[in-house]
């Protein structure tokens, strides 16, 4: 027993000196685990609209036709869509913004979110950047951003001059469930599942502990590009911060209230461009056709050599299709 005590004391002292070499960090410290948001870091580009502060930036001549990029999520950000800025050199005024509570935009309480609120945000973003009433406005939405774009023209069909939808995950609750079922099959014995779930005993986070919640979801994001994933995602794509509260809030809204962004789409008579990735086994032509059928006029294009994250991984294949569409409507 005496030997055991000496042995234990020696280990403890060794570890004490080892730990002494490392800094201690506050789990709730701002900027320790996830980047600061625009309200925490005034050097970040931002706009204040509709009672919030959004991380936003623009590229190109402000008098050119405006193209607004709507990122995925909900809760993700526009970092993996920055390739779209190339359209600025093609004669478009490209606007990026992180949606309310997402990315580097200001966080809000979970119970404050609604579909109408994020539609109002988009209205205010357009108003903020539009330089004349004649300036055309196009939307390019990816994944959730494409759902948001569809929701916007569903509510305001006369405000948008062209709409590009890159794999919207479901324009109503039924389609969202169908897509989720196809894309998120879980093998409970797999490493991917353990990577997603085992962390729940290390990091919990209460409802207002945004940093922990955002960090936790961020490090769990590797499941989306795990080997063999159905969405054809080859690896990680960059992001700033996953707004977990936004994601949870909209998930609750979808589950509790449902949603349907298709009720008025027949009023939107401009041609809509649908994009889908060749390698996304969960989407494909048939799903694109189902979604496109809600619009009076649509065009469906396959993007070769890529899956769901087509804008980051195969922008060179997306770009000519998008540019051709925009130039027809310019």
């Amino acid at each position: 027993m005496k030997t055991n005590l000496l042995y234990s004391a020696a280990i403890a002292v060794s570890i004490f000196f080892f730990l002494g070499c490392e800094n201690e960090n506050d789990i709730d410290g701002i900027g320790n685990l996830v980047p600061k948001t625009v309200d925490q870091d005034p050097t970040l580009p931002s706009i204040s609209v509709n009672g919030t502060q959004l991380h936003a930036e623009t590229f190109g001549n402000p008098n050119n036709p405006m193209l607004i990029f709507l990122h995925g999520g909900p809760g993700s950000d526009y970092r993996n869509g920055l390739n779209v800025q190339q359209l600025a050199t093609d004669g478009y005024y490209v606007v990026f913004y992180d949606q309310r509570g997402s990315g580097l935009s200001k966080r809000h309480d979970k119970n404050s979110y609604s579909i109408q609120l994020v539609l109002d945000d988009l209205t205010e973003v357009i108003k903020y950047y539009r330089t004349s009433p004649q300036q055309k406005v196009f939307l390019l939405g990816h994944s959730w951003g494409a759902m948001l774009g569809a929701a916007y023209v569903n509510s305001y069909p006369d405000k948008i001059d062209g709409l590009i939808l890159a794999e919207p995950g479901g324009l109503n609750k039924k389609l969202l469930d169908d897509y989720g079922e196809m894309s998120r099959k879980i093998n409970i014995f797999s490493e991917v599942t353990s990577n997603l779930l085992y962390v729940d005993q290390f990091l919990t986070g209460k409802e207002n502990q945004h940093e922990i919640l955002d960090y936790k979801y961020g490090i769990s994001s590797s499941f989306s590009y795990a080997k063999g994933n159905k969405e054809g995602i080859p690896g990680p794509s960059p992001f700033w911060r996953i707004g977990t509260t936004v994601l949870e809030s909209f998930t609750d809204i979808a589950e509790n209230d449902g949603f349907d962004f298709t009720t008025n789409l027949d009023q939107y008579t401009t041609k809509v461009l649908f994009l889908y990735g060749e390698l996304n086994q969960s989407y494909g032509l048939s799903f694109a056709q189902k979604e496109a059928a809600y619009f009076p006029v649509s065009e469906i294009e396959e993007v070769k050599g890529t899956g769901h994250e087509m804008i980051y991984f195969k922008w060179e294949n997306v770009h000519p299709i998008v540019l051709n569409y925009l130039n027809q409507l310019k």
């Binding site: 730990l19 490392e22 800094n23 201690e24 960090n25 506050d26 789990i27 990091l203 922990i212």
Partner: peptide, 9 residues
């Protein structure tokens, strides 16, 4: 990187 406190969960 490093040790984080107080309790993480």
């Amino acid at each position: 990187n490093g040790w984080f406190e107080p309790t993480t969960g």
